[in-house]
Write a protein that binds this DNA or RNA. Structure first.
Length: 153
DNA sequence: GCCAACGTTGGC
DNA sequence: GCCAACGTTGGC
């Protein structure tokens, strides 16, 4: 099983929005970056656990845990001319973009801020610090353990 | 609101 | 295939 970090802008979609979904499940659509897409398409597997990160807020921080419940399938928002995520180059018979479904698991007892991560030497190699713009990132099992421990009351 | 870092586009 | 121009992300 693998661990991941998914970024979201809570003003658009937050961990609370996920928790409040009727079945606590959402489509993680709108990914329009090839590196992120490749992770989604090739490596994100059912049962994997995901840290949810809130970006573009103060402070930017990890806020909760979700679980992958459906592996990659075509992101239909790319076909919708009315969608913010419309991409005319993505064809239905050969979709460029994919999405997965994730289910809410829990909030962290205490959020772990970007600042805390940056100040934790054992987390210095996190992709979040190396390539802060990547919206789907792998997390090592060691990093996962450290972060979930930091998040405890 | 600024701007650094990064990704994409398109002319050559 | 290179790289300048442009657009986006996201921390500050």
């Amino acid at each position: 099983m693998n661990y991941w970090l998914f970024k979201t802008e809570p003003n658009t979609y937050s961990i609370d929005d996920l928790k409040n979904e009727p079945n606590k499940i959402t489509h993680w659509d709108g990914i329009r970056n090839y590196a992120a897409r490749n992770f989604l398409r090739d490596e994100v597997k059912k049962g994997d656990l995901v840290l949810i990160y809130h970006s573009v807020v103060k402070p930017p921080q990890l806020v909760g845990v979700a679980k992958v419940v459906k592996e990659a399938y075509p992101d239909h928002t790319a076909f919708d001319a009315n969608s913010h995520y419309f991409d005319p180059k993505s064809k239905k018979d050969n979709p460029t973009w994919v999405m997965v479904d994730i289910e809410y698991v829990r909030h962290l007892d205490n959020p772990v801020t970007l600042d805390q991560i940056r100040n934790t030497p054992t987390l210095e190699n996190m992709v979040l610090l190396k390539n802060s713009r990547l919206s789907i990132q792998p997390v090592t099992s060691t990093e996962w353990s450290i972060i979930t421990e930091m998040a405890k009351d």
